[in-house]
Design a protein around this nucleic acid. Structure first.
Lengths: 236, 236
DNA sequence: CGGACACTTCGGCGACCGCCGAAGCATGGG
DNA sequence: CCCATGCTTCGGCGGTCGCCGAAGTGTCCG
């Protein structure tokens, strides 16, 4: 043992927080960007409330989750966009070859809704996310060939459509997030989040069920075509 | 427990591979992009050869490492650039606030060499990496304000300087990699790797010691200034 | 061909971790 | 005011994991 990298203990500790099936299930669930109560997560993960309580404490202490207490409820969410990105990246690394085929019709149906459109933390994913990302690219608003960035025309487009881009933070304006089902990058970062938020607020899409799945509304179909020229035929 | 995400077991298993101090030490060491023998890693991590052998087997089985047997040696390296990026991202997430101050003069000296210039898997990092990234940005060859991508002028620049960019693979041409010591992104991806390789091959910088540290040569100082207008004063 | 060397396999030890249910403690509703 | 609800703490159990040294296998070199 020579000069040890000082990051070793921290890296191992962070990975250990994710290295448990119950905690991993929580993190993936929390990728929907919303805050869950401890009880919801316990039921979701299929463990006793007492067990999950301890898991949450460790995740919060490790800076992976942020918590907010309201009355007798303990709400938790992913600490920030960086953590979300990290979990997504880790999960994406795993996906190839490990994709599990749905066993029941119910699962197949839910899975396909997720494949059509869903949120990934705070931006659009699935075929919907890819369709939007491709449309932006084809119209010269986003460049993926030399990296992953909006063009000047792209920045202008967001302003014209009425979607504000907060450029004050440290979060990149645009970045690629590898899509779990499509195996291609979709738009994430400030622009991806703003676009998703706008689409939900303006009623272009709505969430379905308690999962992360979203579907495009009739109005959304018109709007997506109007502003992006994207036909969401294959997406609905 | 409702519909469980199929990625849960894979995510937990992948994280578990990193969630051990000995394995984490190996992964961080392997971030230098070179292949290490099992014995070197065992000494580096401070454990018995038998212990490390088992760790390597698990990392290889998990797809994190690639191995190559040569005679009585077992060489291992990170499986690919994606794994390297993942380890870097995880380590970067940890760094804030956990930075450990060097205790001895020797450590301080080694640490500062690493801070000046080093490789991060296959591209330049440290103050050197940041200086190059900043120079590219200032000259309009790289855009960081709307994402992270080369400009057309940037692609042309690589050709003019004589650095070939392999655009056939799936790896992005440019991407930001958060610098551990500088806390800002430096150039990674195909372009970052090609630039680093060129700098080492052309003698602009040389590796020092057995670590990842690199220093700029006198010739390199002239060349970096000639092609990028970057003064490496503060870097040497 | 024999010994040095690098790595692997095996058995066994100790530590840690995740799990549960029971009991305790707040909160909010009837 | 009392009970249901949501969460937390605790003790204890079982499984896994990392570690080592000893013994075994394969390779290289003289």
């Amino acid at each position: 043992m020579t000069t040890r990298d000082p990051r070793v203990p921290g890296l191992a500790r962070l990975a250990a927080l994710i290295a448990d099936e119950t905690r991993a299930a929580c993190l993936l669930a929390l990728l929907d960007g919303r805050a869950w109560t401890a009880g919801e997560l316990a039921r979701h993960a299929g463990v006793a409330a007492s067990t999950l309580s301890e898991h949450l404490s460790r995740l919060v202490a490790g800076g992976v989750l942020a918590e907010e207490r309201q009355g007798r409820h303990r709400y938790v969410r992913l600490a920030d966009a960086r953590v979300a990105q990290l979990v997504e990246d880790l999960a994406a690394q795993v996906a190839p070859g490990e994709a599990v085929r749905p066993r029941t019709l119910r699962e197949a149906s839910a899975g396909s809704a997720m494949a059509r459109g869903r949120t990934c933390y705070d931006h659009l994913a699935g075929r919907l996310g890819i369709a939007v990302t491709d449309a932006l690219t084809e119209r010269g608003l986003l460049r993926q060939d030399t990296g992953f960035a909006l063009t000047d025309a792209g920045v202008e487009w967001f302003g014209r459509v009425g979607i504000a881009l907060d450029r004050s933070g440290r979060r990149p304006l645009a970045r690629g997030c590898l899509d779990w089902t499509e195996r291609r990058p979709h738009l994430a970062g400030v622009a991806g989040a703003a676009l998703c938020r706008h689409a939900l607020e303006a009623g272009w899409c709505v969430r379905v069920g308690s999962e992360r799945a979203v579907v495009v509304t009739a109005a959304g179909e018109r709007e997506f075509f109007a502003v992006l020229g994207v036909s969401v035929e294959g997406v609905r």
